[in-house]
Amino acid sequence: MRKADRQYALYKGDEFIVDGTPREIAKKTGKTFDSLMYYTTPAYRRLVEKAKRGRLEMVEIEYDDES
């Protein structure tokens, strides 16, 4: 599955903001799609690693495929 089609949850620090695909989150929050995709990269995680509090973070939601 393409990264842009996966489900994510957006957090600001420990506070849950919204979940959905990056395009859905962009519509709900007014953030750009490109910014949200950048939040999923290792480079962004390294950049904000020390200043975790108050930073936006996109966390992939993983579902069990067992049905």
Rank of each mutant, 00 (worst) to 15 (best):
D64Y: 02
K12V: 12
V48F: 06
S67E: 07
K27M: 03
L56T: 06
D64K: 05
E57I: 04
Y63H: 04
K31Q: 13
K12R: 14
D14P: 01
Y63A: 01
E66K: 04
A9M: 14
A4W: 06
Y44I: 00
R23T: 15
K3H: 14
E57P: 01
I25P: 01
D65Q: 03
E15T: 08
F16K: 13
T40G: 04
Y63W: 05
G54E: 09
F33T: 05
K3W: 10
R2E: 15
Q7L: 13
A9E: 15
G30L: 08
D5L: 06
R23Y: 04
K28E: 14
R46W: 11
D5S: 07
R45V: 02
F16I: 12
V48K: 10
M1K: 13
E66T: 08
D5F: 04
D5I: 00
E62V: 12
Q7T: 09
T29A: 11
F33G: 03
T32A: 11
E60R: 03
T32P: 00
K50E: 11
D64P: 01
G20H: 11
M37R: 04
G13A: 11
A26S: 14
D34G: 09
D64W: 07
M1P: 15
Y8W: 07
M37W: 04
L10Y: 06
E62F: 08
G20V: 13
E60T: 00
I17V: 15
R53F: 12
E60K: 02
D14C: 05
K28A: 14
R53D: 15
T41A: 07
R6Q: 08
E49C: 04
L56V: 05
L10H: 13
K31H: 14
R45C: 04
V48G: 03
R55T: 09
K27D: 07
S67D: 09
M1C: 10
I25S: 04
F16R: 13
I61Q: 09
D19V: 02
D19N: 13
S35M: 12
R53I: 15
K12G: 08
T32R: 09
A43P: 00
K52G: 08
T32Y: 07
K3L: 15
D65V: 01
E24R: 03
E60L: 00
L36T: 03
R23I: 10
R45P: 03
K50G: 12
K28G: 02
F16W: 11
D65L: 03
A26F: 01
R53H: 13
E62Q: 10
D65K: 00
K3Y: 08
T29G: 02
G13R: 10
Y38L: 10
P22E: 02
E60Q: 09
A4I: 11
A4K: 13
Y11K: 15
I25K: 05
S67C: 05
F16P: 14
E49A: 15
R55I: 07
Y38F: 12
Y63L: 02
V59C: 11
D65T: 01
E62N: 12
L36Q: 11
K31C: 07
M37A: 06
E66Y: 01
M1S: 14
T21N: 07
V48W: 12
Y39A: 06
M58L: 10
L47A: 10
E60A: 03
I61H: 00
T21L: 07
A9K: 14
M58F: 00
A9W: 09
K3V: 03
L56W: 02
E49F: 06
M58K: 01
G30N: 12
D19A: 10
A4D: 15
G54W: 09
V18D: 13
S35D: 08
R6V: 01
K52N: 06
